[in-house]
Amino acid sequence: MAVKMDPIHQFELKPLISFGHIGHQEIAFTQSALYMFAAVGVIALLTIAATSRRSLVPGRMQTMAETFYEFIASTVHQSAGHGSERFVPLVFSLFMFVLVCNLFGMIPYTFTVTSHIIVTFMLALVVILTVVIYGFMAHGTHFLGLFVPPGVPGWLKPLIVVIEVVSFISRPISLSVRLFANMLAGHIALKIFAGFVPALLAAGVWGILSPLPLALSVAVTALEMLVAVLQAYVFATLTSIYLSDALHPGH
């Protein structure tokens, strides 16, 4: 009985339609792209199809859409304060996209879009570029005041500015690595624990121990469900906090 125990295999991209190469880069419609568009479709169903009747007394799906909207709107408002309404669509899109991609990954045999660093990094880059571009557009050079906290003695200022700049630059990295690493590690752990079950069953007497990793993979699945939702929330909250800098760079 050959049990495939490759926990990395699930992260491989499988081209469904290949459009050829540009240099070493293969341009292909992969299962990852399919899940991205599936996520967009699910979100559109939830937020557009379910609200098409504009019911005064909402049904289940419309209530869900309204709950998500109000949740994100209040998160953005609390974190980014006055004038943050314009960023609600961005944070809402990011939150729903990450949430639905994470949850898609929890279905067995599916692919987790957010387990690829390039995807999470691009999403984080969207956030940081929004902060930088909007910050300069709205406040001009005053936006750079973000790196000079008020009330710092003069001799300490160069050091503080360096620290602030480094922390600002590390934001997209921490934002993307946090999501990517959580999804990756969770799915690897799940695969390994689940893989122990058939491995133990195939090992004769050791098969009596197989319920242990089975129970563990059930527990890890529950934990991963929590992580999937929590990471989407963390991504949205941190985005709101970073956007607050673009809106109020002087604090």
Binding site: L13, Q25, T30, A33, A39, V40, T47, S93
Partner: peptide, 22 residues
């Protein structure tokens, strides 16, 4: 080697999503 492709589809999907949402 998969980055360009992922960035492309992510940009399309997320752009579509942002358009639909906003």
């Amino acid at each position: 080697t998969t980055y360009a492709s992922q960035i492309l589809w992510l940009a399309l999907a997320f752009g579509l999503l942002y358009y639909l949402m906003s």
